[in-house]
């Protein structure tokens, strides 16, 4: 296991951003962490990289507990994990050239001298499909797609074990997004890193994740192999999420059964009692309002969900109730 998160809690004051979350990512595995705004998905990424301190729970990187390590003790471990951000405009230092940006991690971790760094930057730029003359350019001279390639080059130049990517293609136009997604797929296959891919976009994780975990208000409501989640979602929230994303085919789209969710996402300051989804769930009944359903793998096939309505022989169908 490259990453193991156990019962992670992160509260910002009264905001219960992450409220008891466990997940694992294996060697070379891409886990898509999906959720809507305010679900806490980005906070999970920040805790993993120790960009913020968890309130409770443990985070293990390659078998080592890093939850409480000091900044100093974390420093050498930063070689093993890296972040790719959503916004390629604000995450690159505008005063640095591309060569400096991509080479900086090598020099900081003293894995190469200036000359060695220069060679590795060349190799890395080639891997992400940027021409060598880009080395001397500044971020503002690049397009959005090129900047995101620089972000990837910087994240991967130390050959980390784990990459945390937070909405890395969400700010890009679809044609540029396609080439960046292809690139991430190629790099992941060639370099074999594990990846926590955080996104709101189901179609993106359907394309590149191995497994998917769906978050709602600080907790995972369902997780499992990608094909399973898309073919037979179990949790009513997952069903709603999948049915709400429109497909680019007017004939199919207009015939689809949709799960219409009432109301808004409740505030993470004061999450609902019982099942956190009960205020919007079309299937909610008495127990959902009082008892919190545990995340259980009812059928023992690596596809756990947290819903009282799931039994060994029954999966709820949120679309059947309108």
């Amino acid at each position: 296991m490259i990453l193991r998160i156990d019962n992670l809690v992160k509260h910002y004051g009264q905001v219960r951003a992450v409220d008891g979350l466990s997940l694992e990512i294996g060697q070379g595995e891409v886990l898509g962490l999906v959720g809507e705004s305010g679900s806490g998905k980005s906070t999970v990424g920040k805790c993993v990289l120790r960009l913020t301190d968890p309130t409770a729970g443990t985070i293990e990187l390659a078998g080592r507990d890093i939850t409480r390590l000091s900044r100093r003790a974390m420093r050498p471990l930063r070689r093993d994990m890296h972040m790719v951000f959503q916004d390629p405009f604000s995450s690159l230092n505008p005063r640095f050239t591309i060569e400096q940006i991509v080479g900086e991690p090598l020099l900081r971790h003293k894995v190469a001298d200036r000359r060695g760094a220069s060679e590795r930057v060349s190799a890395m730029l080639e891997k992400v499909g940027l021409r060598q003359e880009m080395r001397s350019r500044f971020p503002h001279e690049l397009s959005g797609g090129q900047r995101q390639r620089v972000g990837l080059a910087r994240a991967l130049v130390l050959e980390p074990k784990l990459v945390v990517a937070d909405e890395p293609v969400s700010a890009l136009d679809v044609s540029v997004q396609a080439s960046v997604l292809n690139l991430i797929t190629d790099l992941q296959r060639d370099m074999g890193f594990s990846c926590l891919f955080i996104t709101h976009d189901l179609s993106v994780v359907e394309f590149l994740a191995d497994r998917i975990a769906v978050m709602y208000l600080g907790k995972i409501v369902e997780s499992g192999p990608k094909a399973e989640i898309f073919a037979a979602p179990r949790h009513p929230y997952t069903q709603a999420l999948l049915s709400a994303a429109p497909v680019a085919d007017p004939v199919r789209q207009r015939e689809r059964r949709r799960v219409v969710l009432g109301g808004d996402v409740p505030s993470p300051v004061d999450p609902p009692s019982g099942c956190r989804f009960h205020t919007r769930c079309p299937l909610a009944y008495d127990a959902c309002r009082t008892d919190e359903p545990p995340l259980t793998d009812t059928r023992g096939n690596g596809h756990p969900a947290a819903c009282h309505l799931i039994t060994a022989d029954r999966i709820p169908d949120a679309a059947a109730h309108r």
Binding site: E36, S37, H200, A240, L241, A245, P246, V260, L261, V265
Partner: peptide, 9 residues
């Protein structure tokens, strides 16, 4: 969010 988008559409 997509679940909200559906309602606005």
């Amino acid at each position: 969010d997509v679940t909200i988008q559906a309602g606005v559409l």
